[in-house]
């Protein structure tokens, strides 16, 4: 189950301070990079909930994010809902779809689960690509950002939008922590350890998996809506399975099942991408090498490696573990 430690708080504080410094000091390009990191961080946070804590390695989270973007665009541009209502609506739609996908895939495991989620993702991609109302290959433009002028915030300004995304990431993180620390999160933890045992304890395993997948979808839909607001244009490429694959790479790069690790992974991945792509068009190769080194080092990603060495993981209180006991029980 997820627990905060001093080291995790420290890393979160460093990441938060870095994001704020970047938001207030960077120029236009720096802010665009920051927004990209923040939106990717929300996506990988949602993916880590299911993959890291539930063992449900999903290859449809990219498609869910894309659906969030399209749902936001449709609700705000075609239906005419106010952007904030469209944002909530997009989250609800993606959350509901993710719940259904989770419920259907819950009985499969390992490679079969991955393939089933990939199939759902590709179905969503094909549907969006081939349905004229979504603009087909041309995508959809003219997407607006929420109007917060009533409280003196202009989200069309990159700095304000970056801070809006940062606030969104904080909320998404707090929501993920709340879910993982709830009874539902504990049940998920038990299921990840032993589905059979949890069934014998009277738990409806598929329902827990579906609920967590739905909540993860809710957060993914939020990332999708922010992605649509960010570029103000969306295309079916957002739903491509490679987006899911990239998100999975970021989670593994940062540290699976740590919630903080994927945030570190998002920062490392986007910075690597931008820095390396300026030097070589083969930046994917370098990211691939980094990923292979991380995987072969058997550390749990960059954050896991740091936590094992610097953080000296103290998930449970050690003083109680050595408390004097009257016999050798």
């Amino acid at each position: 189950m997820f627990r905060h430690t001093t080291f995790r708080y420290l890393v979160l504080a460093i990441l938060g301070a870095g994001a704020l410094f970047q938001a207030f000091s960077a120029g236009y390009f720096g802010l665009e990079v920051l927004i990209e990191i923040l939106i990717l961080a929300i996506l990988v946070l949602a993916l880590d909930m299911v993959a890291g804590f539930g063992g449900m390695v999903s290859l449809c989270h990219g498609a869910l994010m894309g659906l969030g973007a399209y749902a936001y665009a449709m609700l705000s541009s075609i239906v005419g809902l106010p952007p904030l209502a469209a944002l909530v609506g997009a989250m609800a739609i993606v959350g509901a779809l993710a719940w259904i996908i989770g419920a259907i895939c819950a009985r499969s495991h390992g490679i079969y689960f991955i393939m089933a989620t990939l199939a759902f993702g590709q179905m969503a991609y094909s549907y969006i690509f081939q349905t004229p109302i979504f603009g087909g290959d041309d995508g959809m433009g003219g997407i607006t950002r929420p109007d917060l002028s009533a409280i003196g915030i202009d989200l069309n300004d990159s700095r304000s939008f970056a801070l809006f995304c940062l606030a969104g990431l904080v909320l998404a993180y707090l929501a993920a922590v709340a879910v993982l620390r709830s009874g539902l999160g504990r049940s998920l933890c038990g299921i990840h350890h032993s589905e059979e045992r949890m069934r014998a304890l009277g738990l409806t395993v598929w329902r827990v998996k579906a609920d967590i997948f739905g909540l993860s979808g809710l957060i993914t839909g939020f990332a999708g809506a922010l992605a649509a607001m960010h570029v103000m244009y969306i295309s079916p490429g957002l739903l491509d399975w490679t987006v899911s694959g990239e998100a999975l790479v970021v989670v593994i790069l940062g540290g699976l099942g740590t919630l903080v690790g994927p945030l570190v992974g998002a920062v490392a991945f986007v910075i690597l991408k931008h820095e390396l792509s300026a030097v070589t068009p083969y930046w994917h190769l370098v990211v691939g090498v980094v990923l292979i080194v991380v995987v072969l080092s058997r550390a749990n990603g960059i954050f896991g490696w740091l936590e094992a060495r610097i953080g000296a993981r103290r998930i449970f209180p050690t003083h109680a573990a050595v408390k004097k006991v009257p016999n050798d029980a």
């Binding site: 189950m1 504990r186 038990g190 350890h193 032993s194 449970f316």
Partner: peptide
Amino acid sequence: DIFPSLSVRENLEL
């Protein structure tokens, strides 16, 4: 089948 990542209290509360 004690769940190792849960505390004793959390195992019971399950």
